[in-house]
Amino acid sequence: MGQGQVAFVTGAGSGIGAAVARRLSGQGAVVVAADVNPAAVEAVAAELPGVTPATLDVADAGQVERAVAKVVRDHGRLDVVVHAAGVDDPAAKQVLADALVAGEPPQAVAALGDAAWRRVLSVNLDGTFHVLRAAVRVMTPARAGAIVVIGSSASFDAPVGYAHYAAAKAGVHALSQSVAKEAIAFGVRVNVVAPGPTDTGMAARTPEPLRHSMSDGRVRPYASPEEIADIAIFLAGAGAANLVGAVLLANGGRFTV
């Protein structure tokens, strides 16, 4: 990222998105930091030079279009988008944790309701589509831009009992790769970071038995949000010019694909 470049970051009120906003601010970028939680993203923006907060629900296509249009209207350009907004399902995690404690196989799919399925898919997958579409609509006429999507290692190992999250993130990866092959013809690069366990708010809400089951002394511990943010910043920068449609697995060696 160069001094004065304009970036739009979703999910910037906490975790990886907030870490990305901090890194970009430190590099002199002008950053619009968006999150569904206005108080959280305002607190992040208040401590960072060049960062403006915005309230955004990525599941709402109209909100996304208006937010991206406002970035261009206010700053005249959009150079980088980092899409980190996403949700997990604490109720499903509790089902898995309870099964672990009981020493029984989980029955999470049977307990998964339509509303929980729809929420995870609408934010994680539909939201990614909304952000990608809005970004390419303004970047392709400029024949330049970089988009980085935060995916998940769960799309590869498809953890038992977490089908809706795995399905959503697998869709995120396929969607991003398809868009990448289209957008590069217009000078716009799209890539994905697929983190493994990371110390974010989602991790903090993970029941201890389940969190413990994902710890393994043979691999690196949970990543910090800053470590994942550094990968996103690399993908957005000139040093990653030849990376298009890449899905970088950042899970500390838990598995390879």
Rank of each mutant, 00 (worst) to 15 (best):
residue 105 P to Q: 05
residue 150 I to W: 03
residue 67 A to Q: 05
residue 81 V to E: 00
residue 127 G to S: 01
residue 142 A to F: 00
residue 64 V to C: 10
residue 145 G to A: 01
residue 108 A to T: 05
residue 154 A to C: 09
residue 140 T to Y: 13
residue 113 G to D: 11
residue 170 A to G: 08
residue 113 G to M: 04
residue 75 H to C: 10
residue 70 K to E: 15
residue 166 A to F: 08
residue 117 W to F: 04
residue 136 V to D: 01
residue 111 A to S: 06
residue 165 Y to L: 03
residue 156 F to A: 11
residue 161 G to M: 02
residue 147 I to M: 04
residue 148 V to Q: 01
residue 156 F to V: 15
residue 142 A to T: 10
residue 109 V to K: 12
residue 138 V to T: 02
residue 82 V to G: 01
residue 139 M to C: 06
residue 89 D to V: 03
residue 156 F to P: 13
residue 133 R to A: 09
residue 165 Y to G: 06
residue 168 A to W: 05
residue 98 D to S: 07
residue 142 A to K: 05
residue 96 L to K: 02
residue 141 P to L: 01
residue 98 D to Q: 03
residue 104 E to W: 08
residue 170 A to H: 04
residue 115 A to F: 10
residue 126 D to T: 14
residue 83 H to Q: 09
residue 109 V to M: 15
residue 136 V to K: 03
residue 147 I to L: 11
residue 116 A to D: 09
residue 157 D to V: 14
residue 76 G to L: 10
residue 97 A to Y: 09
residue 133 R to C: 12
residue 137 R to E: 03
residue 98 D to R: 09
residue 144 A to V: 03
residue 100 L to C: 10
residue 68 V to L: 11
residue 145 G to T: 12
residue 64 V to W: 04
residue 173 H to I: 14
residue 128 T to P: 14
residue 75 H to S: 11
residue 99 A to D: 10
residue 79 D to Q: 08
residue 153 S to D: 15
residue 160 V to E: 14
residue 108 A to Y: 03
residue 152 S to W: 02
residue 129 F to W: 06
residue 86 G to T: 12
residue 62 G to F: 06
residue 90 P to M: 04
residue 132 L to S: 11
residue 106 P to K: 06
residue 135 A to I: 04
residue 76 G to Q: 03
residue 154 A to H: 11
residue 61 A to Y: 04
residue 157 D to G: 03
residue 164 H to R: 09
residue 104 E to V: 14
residue 147 I to A: 06
residue 163 A to I: 07
residue 112 L to A: 05
residue 155 S to A: 12
residue 61 A to D: 14
residue 103 G to A: 00
residue 100 L to R: 12
residue 164 H to I: 05
residue 135 A to Q: 00
residue 70 K to V: 13
residue 167 A to H: 00
residue 123 V to Y: 09
residue 144 A to G: 14
residue 83 H to R: 07
residue 164 H to D: 10
residue 150 I to Y: 00
residue 63 Q to R: 02
residue 125 L to Q: 00
residue 172 V to N: 06
residue 121 L to D: 02
residue 128 T to D: 08
residue 73 R to M: 14
residue 129 F to I: 02
residue 106 P to M: 04
residue 72 V to L: 02
residue 159 P to Y: 01
residue 109 V to S: 15
residue 111 A to I: 10
residue 93 K to Y: 15
residue 147 I to Q: 07
residue 98 D to T: 11
residue 67 A to N: 07
residue 95 V to T: 04
residue 146 A to T: 03
residue 158 A to Q: 15
residue 66 R to T: 15
residue 161 G to K: 06
residue 75 H to N: 06
residue 131 V to M: 07
residue 106 P to D: 04
residue 168 A to C: 10
residue 133 R to W: 12
residue 161 G to T: 07
residue 165 Y to S: 07
residue 170 A to L: 01
residue 123 V to F: 08
residue 173 H to Q: 15
residue 135 A to E: 06
residue 161 G to Y: 07
residue 81 V to Y: 01
residue 64 V to M: 02
residue 153 S to G: 15
residue 72 V to C: 05
residue 128 T to N: 01
residue 106 P to I: 02
residue 95 V to H: 11
